[in-house]
Structure formats: C-alpha cells, structure tokens
Design a protein around this nucleic acid. Structure first.
Length: 594
DNA sequence: CTTTTCACAGTCGCGCGGATGGGA
DNA sequence: TCCCATCCGCGCGACTGTGAAAAG
C-alpha cells in the first residue's frame, strides 16, 4: 500500500489504531533521522532559553546551538529511538528517507519505538533549526525538493505550556483516557490553499529513561520500557482537508486522550497509549495527501514535522508535583471545582505571603512589582489565568522556583522574547493592519482581546468546543482564539494572523516597550540560574521539600510561599505574561522543524 | 514503599422538552 | 388557530483532581 487512507472525519484514527506504529524497529534510514531529531531536541530543550536570546545573538547561537547549553541529551532530548522520526520532515537536510519515506501506518506497524539498538541521542554539532524564531525566518525549502513554501506552525497556547514546562509538565493517563491539559493547539501557515493535508499528532518518547519523582524533582530511574505497545498517533478529526482549511482556523487537539490501556488502540482512535513515568514529546505532522486522503508519495517533502520542546511531558497516573497540580487546577476549566479554597489560601496579607528569597536573580529585580498591576489585569485574568487578580498573583507565587526544572525567569522571558520575534508570513499583505503583527508595528494592537470578545462562530467544531460562551476562559484553558478571531477575518485572507483590535492597546504598548531591555538578556543567564535553583534544592532539604511539595494544597503556606522566589519572581512572571498576551503573539510560538 | 485504580464531588456543556412570541 | 423560531430550565454526561484502597 502506498497511499495512506486517512479516514475522513469519522474515525480519524482508525487507520493508525489498527496499523499504528507499535513497536517500531530501527532502521539505518530512520536512525539518521533520529540523529537529526535529537539535535533538534538539544536546541529545543533549551528552547525557552533560546527565546531569551536576542536577535543579534541568534544567528551565532544557531550556528552552534549545542554550545549554548551545559548539558545535552538525557533530560531534554527528544528520544526518538531509532525510528522516532517515522515521519521525517522533508526539511531534513540530506534526508535519506526513501521516496516512501512517510511510512504508511501499515508499514510502520511492528516497528519498535526503541528498536534493537542503543538509544541515539542527538548531540551532533549540526543544527536543524534554521528557522530559529529570533532570526525571523519564515520558512525554508528543502534543497532539491522542489516543494513549495514550507509550512510554519505556531503553538497557540505557548505561554501556558511554558508555565507547565517550567515545572516539568505532567499528563495524567488513565484507562479510560485523559485529555491533555494544556492541549495541543496550533496555527498553521504556509500551506498550499488548495492542496489537501492530513494533520496529526504523534507522541514519541523524549528520552530512553524511566522517571520518578523524588526529592521534589524528577530524576531518571533506569531505562524506559521499550516494548510499549499501542497507538501513538492521533489524527485530527478534520483530516484530510485543504490547506486553506487548516490555515483558516486554529488546529486544536483538545479531544486527544492519553491512556495507559494498551488495548485502547484497537477500539479508540481518540487515545494515545503511553506508559507512566516516561517522558514524551508530542510532534505535529502535516502530510500532503490526495483529495481522498491518500498520501501522495511522489515527494517526500510533502511530509513536515514540527516539534515544540515545551510540549514535553511525563505521563503519570497521579500527579507527582503539586505545582503541576495547582497549575492544572488554576488553568483547566474542568478543575474549577477545586479552586474553592484558593482564595482563602492567598487572602493573607502580602507581607505574610512573600518571603525574601536568596535565590532571587538580579534580573528579576528589574521588574517593578507594581507594574504588573498597572499594566493590564484584564488580560491576565481573562486570557492567561481566568482567575481573580489576586489569585493570579498567588498562583504565580505558588510556583516555587526550587522545584522548577527551568528557571521561571528565563522561561517567561523566553516566552516574551519569542513573542517579540513575530514571524510575519510572506503572504502578508502590506498595509493590512490585520496582519501587522510585528513588534515594530505595534504588536500590542494584536491583542487577543478582539479574538476573545467576539462570539464564537465556528463552522467546525473541533476548536473551542468548550466554553463557547467564554472565549476568555478558553484562552486560559488553552483553547485557542482562532475561532472567535476568525469571525473578524476577511475571507480572502485565511492565512492571516490576528487582526488588530481597534483599541485597547495604548497602555499595553507602553508597558511592553518599557520591558524591552529585559527581553534581550542573554540566554545563558537564565539557564545558569535554573541550574542554580535546582542545585540548591537538591543539596539542601530535598526530603523536606518533597513533603511540602506533595499535597501542597493542604498546606498552602509551605512550599509556595517559603520556597518561592517571592515577589521578584512573581512580578517577572506576571510581567512576562502581560507582555505575551497583549501582543497576542505570546500565544504563537513559531517553529519550523525538520 | 511506590504505583495504579477507583469512587467521589464539583463544574460545566450539551441536548431535550416546554413555554413564549411573532407571523401567516 | 396553527406553524415556526427562539428562549429557558432541567437533567445527563463529560470532565476534573482528590484521596483512599488495592496492587505490585
């Protein structure tokens, strides 16, 4: 079978579930691809820092991305095994994928995620991220591929992902299947308007390790189980569809479910089978197909893969890190019922809640605590947290830096920095303010407000199927804004980024501009701070921390306030989110990965 | 001891059915 | 009076994290 008979809408995952990539075996071809994937990871894992890099640094950094980072591989790399890139992007330089490189599910069936060989960590000197956001590169063409313009993918709810990623995201898996939160949501540009594409998500092991939560942090614990069976892919229900369709609206995978039920792959196409305490990396695949959904194998460049490092997560059957739990409760609308004690937890005077932290970074002192309130509480509440102002503040504070895998400062700053490096699609029409999302062009006017305020008018139900009456809530929950926003869009510009709201931007613009210097801080700083933070907790009272961290909600004053970097971190975080949201850009990371 | 499973309570969206109002 | 569209309330089900019990 050459074609890939993606089912249309109904039962989109059938094909994959039946012939899914269970137990993929390694192959030399794919092995090389693995290598590239791994490299990508090295860069990606530090993605947050990458965003932190100023534009001027970007180019040099990209030249030798690995040198930027003190470590490579294990904790962060996308472990693709020997066949992780079963859908190698056509952007892979020198891809050796055969013409049928994009393996049909049937072909992939039986392959082992780990293969028989050793794990390949991609730590090569090469770099597969020419589209580094800071460079402003919009797309790239595969040499010799003859393919059209490359697609670009934006991670719509990236700030939220970063928030979780900062603490090492955990995703609950159950036998019945559990939805992801945050869920994957993308905006795609650069597709052929009339061509047909299948869009699907694959979840692959991020590394070959088994993880466990110990001493308040995640540590490796032996090797991962390499015999995991089950469906690893989720085809978007609207596949196949035209490029215009995919670009017209946000592509959300909110109904994607994660399960540890190995038998789920046979009867439930909505679920991806994962293994608890393993780290995974979701990947978005866009495959050009014929109108009937059959993959066109004539050109390997028709397959594109996008990986966002902030989407990495560890599958768990029960939450380990209470910071993650709190974030889920704070942001997931379905967990609203667990927020009831939140107010009481944080209604204490601020002086009681804030504890000076010796780990405060110098950088964070640049933030004026009051600024965040002066800026735009509206945005924070409605778009970022959907929480009362004081709760948002408390929530941020509740993030103990000592428990972070990544530095909040660097992460948030990275998000902010990335937001500034808006990618302006080449198709953008000059003079169209609707498309004017670049920073220099008052990107603050690209506020999400307009998208949120507009009532939903979905022609398709995949996006924002929940909270149709509350776009703000959906924003906070990770549901995209495209649906509401698209209503304002001109039909002639399905690929257009956000329109510019008529008002509401003045204050934000000013506030954002004030923070520009921060966003150009060196990335290395953020990383080193992170390492320091981790070390501090490790060397000190990890045991105590663990106790405090677990079930933190039962003792709200413990970890959150005592271990947190307190006001500086809080303000910084909030500021960064303020910077993200008013621009709207914060919700759209840009990656073009091989 | 760690990990998984299950029942539970709370929230919210959706669908259904009844009530209401306007037009033919 | 009848028909149709709209609005509103109710109940069901999906969804969440919690916490205890079970399993390994």
């Amino acid at each position: 079978m050459v074609g890939l008979p993606f089912p249309c809408r109904a039962g989109p995952g059938d094909t994959f579930s039946k012939t899914g990539p269970d137990g993929r075996k390694g192959s030399p071809v794919l092995g090389e691809d693995e290598l590239t994937s791994g490299r990508r990871y090295n860069l990606d894992e530090l993605g947050s820092d990458r965003y932190f890099i100023s534009s001027s640094q970007a180019s040099s950094d990209m030249a030798s991305p690995c040198s930027l980072f003190p470590y490579a591989g294990q904790t962060g790399s996308v472990y693709t095994g020997t066949t992780g890139s079963r859908y190698p992007a056509s952007l892979h330089y020198g891809s050796v994928l055969p013409p049928a490189g994009f393996s049909s599910p049937s072909v992939c069936t039986g392959r082992s995620q780990f293969g028989s060989g050793g794990y390949q960590f991609s730590q090569g000197p090469g770099c597969l991220y020419p589209s580094y956001p800071g460079t402003g590169i919009s797309s790239m063409s595969l040499p010799g591929s003859g393919a059209g313009p490359r697609a670009q993918v934006y991670l719509c709810n990236r700030p939220l992902w970063l928030k979780f990623h900062r603490h090492q995201t955990e995703m609950i898996i159950t036998k019945q299947g559990r939805r992801m939160f945050p869920f994957l949501s993308f905006n795609i540009t650069g597709l052929n308007l009339t061509a047909h594409y299948n869009v699907f998500v694959e979840v692959v092991l991020a590394d070959p390790n088994h993880w466990r939560f110990q001493g308040g942090k995640w540590v490796t614990c032996g090797k991962a189980d390499n015999n995991m069976q089950g469906n690893k892919m989720y085809v978007h229900p609207e596949s196949p569809n035209t490029g215009a369709h995919w670009m017209r609206q946000e592509i959300s995978f909110g109904k994607l479910k994660l399960t540890n039920n190995k038998g789920a792959n046979n009867n439930n196409t909505q679920m991806i089978v994962l293994q608890s305490l393993h780290k995974y990396q979701p990947r978005l695949h866009i495959v050009e197909v014929t109108e009937d959904g059959v993959e066109d194998m004539s050109n390997e460049a028709r397959t594109q893969t996008f990986t966002f490092p902030e989407n990495q997560f560890i599958a768990v059957t029960a939450y380990q890190n209470t910071d993650i739990t709190q974030l889920k409760i704070d942001h997931n609308p379905f967990a609203k019922g667990f927020r009831d004690n939140y107010d009481s937890m944080y209604t204490a005077p601020e002086s009681d809640r804030l504890t000076p932290s010796p780990t405060d970074s110098p950088r964070s002192t640049q933030i004026v605590p009051g600024a965040r309130y002066a800026m735009q509480p509206f945005f924070q509440d409605q778009f970022v947290n959907n929480l009362p102002q004081n709760r948002f503040y408390s929530s941020e504070r509740a993030v103990p830096q000592t428990n972070s895998l990544l530095s909040p400062q660097s992460e948030d700053a990275a998000a902010a920095a990335s937001a500034q490096r808006w990618f302006v699609p080449p198709v953008q029409q000059p003079g169209s303010n609707k498309l004017d999302l670049s920073y220099d062009n008052d990107y603050s006017t690209s506020s999400l407000l307009s998208y949120g305020i507009k009532p939903l008018s979905l022609q398709t139900s995949h996006a924002l199927s929940y909270y149709p009456d509350s776009a703000f809530a959906s924003m906070a929950a990770g549901w995209g804004t495209r649906s509401s926003y698209q209503r304002k869009m001109t039909t002639g510009l399905p690929w257009s980024p956000r329109p510019s709201p008529p008002a509401f931007a003045e204050d934000q613009l000013g506030a954002n501009k004030d923070k520009l210097p921060e966003e150009t801080a060196p990335s290395a700083t953020g990383w080193m701070e992170t390492s320091h933070s981790l070390k501090s907790v490790d060397s000190s009272d990890a045991g105590v921390y663990s106790m405090v961290c677990k079930r933190r909600r039962m003792s709200p004053g413990a970890s959150s306030t005592e271990n947190s970097p307190t006001i500086k971190c809080e303000d910084l975080t909030a500021e960064d989110y303020n910077k993200d949201n008013p621009k709207g850009t914060g919700y759209y990371a840009f990656y073009t990965s091989p």
